[in-house]
Simulated assay, not measured.
Amino acid sequence: MRLTPLGLDGAILIEVDRIVDARGHFARVFCADELADAGLDVAIVQSSVSFNAKSGTLRGMHWQTEEHAETKYVRCTRGAVYDAIVDLRPQSPSYLRWVSVELSADNQRTLYIPKGFAHGFQTLCDDTEVFYQMTARFAPDAARGARFDDPAFAIEWPAVPRRIMSDKDLGYPDFQA
């Protein structure tokens, strides 16, 4: 595995080293010892899958409050997504900055999202599946969100003919710093 810092304090892109032969390829996508040696949180307690039928589906921006904050490992296991994260930690040198990466079944990348970050993605093709591993259990009362187009973040999302979003994601108020 190759770990590449993304310019936001603590955010890492994890890329695989494929072993290729006539059968296809093999790649390690998670190794607790290797990741922990690099200072990453590997205490996974919950995993989830998000299936998205249509291209242009946007989920986010989501996070949990501090007492239930979670580190996330996010991979796209089918299709492709434009994945965006925002540093919401006021003490961080990258506070309110965002970065995006393309995650796909083809590139097999994993996005490591530290505690205190908002996360969202937009699908780039139909029938896309995203796999999450988290270091904290989902706590509905601690769930928070901001609009994908919140001016405090100014994330540049790919243009799509039709964006598909939940009413909840569309109804979030402006982020309060």
Rank of each mutant, 00 (worst) to 15 (best):
Met1Gly: 10
Leu3Cys: 05
Leu3Gln: 05
Leu3Pro: 00
Gly7Tyr: 03
Asp9Lys: 11
Ile14Leu: 15
Glu15Cys: 01
Glu15Tyr: 02
Val16Ile: 09
Asp17Trp: 03
Arg18Lys: 15
Ile19Phe: 13
Asp21Leu: 03
Arg23Gln: 09
Gly24Leu: 05
Val29Tyr: 08
Cys31Lys: 15
Cys31His: 15
Leu35Ile: 01
Ala36Asp: 05
Ala36Trp: 01
Ala38Met: 07
Ala38Asp: 09
Leu40Ser: 04
Asp41Trp: 05
Asp41Thr: 11
Ala43Gln: 12
Val45Met: 08
Val45Ser: 10
Gln46His: 06
Gln46Tyr: 08
Gln46Thr: 05
Gln46Val: 04
Ser48Trp: 11
Val49Gln: 14
Phe51Glu: 14
Asn52Leu: 13
Gly56Met: 08
Thr57Ala: 12
Arg59Trp: 04
Gly60Tyr: 01
His62Tyr: 12
Trp63Val: 11
Gln64Lys: 06
His68Ile: 01
Thr71Asn: 02
Arg75His: 11
Cys76Trp: 07
Gly79Val: 03
Ala80Gly: 13
Ala80Asn: 08
Ala80Tyr: 06
Ala84Met: 04
Asp87Asn: 06
Pro90Met: 10
Pro93Ser: 03
Ser94Glu: 08
Leu96Pro: 04
Arg97Asn: 12
Val101Ser: 06
Glu102Pro: 06
Glu102Met: 12
Ser104Phe: 11
Asp106Pro: 07
Arg109Lys: 15
Thr110Lys: 00
Leu111Ile: 02
Tyr112Thr: 00
Ile113Leu: 10
Pro114Thr: 09
Lys115Ala: 14
His119Val: 12
Phe121Gln: 02
Thr123Leu: 05
Thr128Trp: 07
Glu129Ala: 15
Phe131Tyr: 15
Phe131Thr: 12
Met134Cys: 15
Pro140Arg: 04
Asp141Ile: 08
Ala143Arg: 13
Ala143Ile: 12
Phe148Leu: 05
Asp150Trp: 01
Pro151Trp: 07
Ala154Gly: 13
Trp157Ile: 00
Val160Asp: 00
Pro161Cys: 00
Ser166Asp: 08
Ser166Thr: 15
Ser166Asn: 10
Ser166Trp: 09
Asp169Pro: 04
Tyr172Glu: 11
Gln176Ala: 12
